[in-house]
Amino acid sequence: MKELLTAKKLVTRTTLAFAAMVVVMLVCSLIGTESVSLKAVFSGLDTQQTTNTDYEIFVHVRLPRIILAAIVGAALACSGVVFQALLRNPLADPYILGISSGAGLGAIVAVIGGLNWTLWGRSPIAVFAFAGALGTVWLVWFIGRFTGKSHVTGLILAGVVVNAFFSAVIMFLISVAKSDEVYATIFWLMGNMTEESFLVLWLGAGCVGAGIFALFYISPKLNALSFGEDDARSMGVNTAGTRTIAFAVAALITAIAVSLSGLVGFVGLIVPHGVRLVFGPDHRQLLPLSGIVGAIFLVAADTLARVIVAPAQLPVGVVTAIVGGPFFLVLLVKYTHKIGWPSK
């Protein structure tokens, strides 16, 4: 009989994956146009020498960026898991309910408005993107509620339509904006990692970490919800409460990710599928492992984005799609027998 998931197995796998993530983050922080020596970095930690270049690059340039990529990758991957489960749709990703267009609209409004202030170290683009993302999810949720019993289909359709409408508004604003404003917006829309302050990183990591923990707590109920609301309810799940919490938390961590890095595509779609193909669909395992693999994937992708055309940099969203796509297809071919695609 198939080996079943136990708490011990989950702790072991999660710990190993977490250790692998730390190693990847460490290795990636040494790679770049300027190579960094770990020995020199640690001597810098001991003496706090301000002239230690390796230490400066490691602590103030590479580490913040790599931690940011890990936060964003974990948030998008976990959010993708939740949206796929709740919408029972393998094509769902964190942006399916219009978060991307809402965030994009917020960002371009901030750019065109010429706003120039900061809130907890965040630029107006980030703040408006965050508000736009959450506002759009609320709007889609509100519209979806009127569709009643076919809630899932109604939500997806509302998301698609709101996405299309806001995208059209974005295109309109871009077409009437000045060229430097257009460049700033497009650059943001492609998704980029930048060196953030540790205050922003701690805040982001804290919120995303708490969100992922909350999602893990309700993960057994997500298993039941994958079979539909009626089935889950008859198995004893408070479906309305679980769905509301899951949607709200997933939308919140996606909005945080988007406000930190712009629209990084593909992570929230392929990481959950990749982990599901290798380890199975049980959400108790899928959520934490997707978070960690999402972090590893985006850290590695951002490192490639930094070095592949150095000294220039690619938007990380380009790398996630170019590298992630073929990698995912290999997984799909290798593990497809485990899925048991329905014959009808």
Binding site: N223, F227, R276, I339, W341
Partner: peptide
């Protein structure tokens, strides 16, 4: 309920174990 095929590839044992969710 009337038969349907789930979207994700849960195994038989995983699905039957879900009966214990409550």
């Amino acid at each position: 309920r009337q038969e349907f095929v789930p979207v994700f590839g849960f195994s038989v044992i995983e699905m039957v174990l879900m009966a214990r969710t409550a």
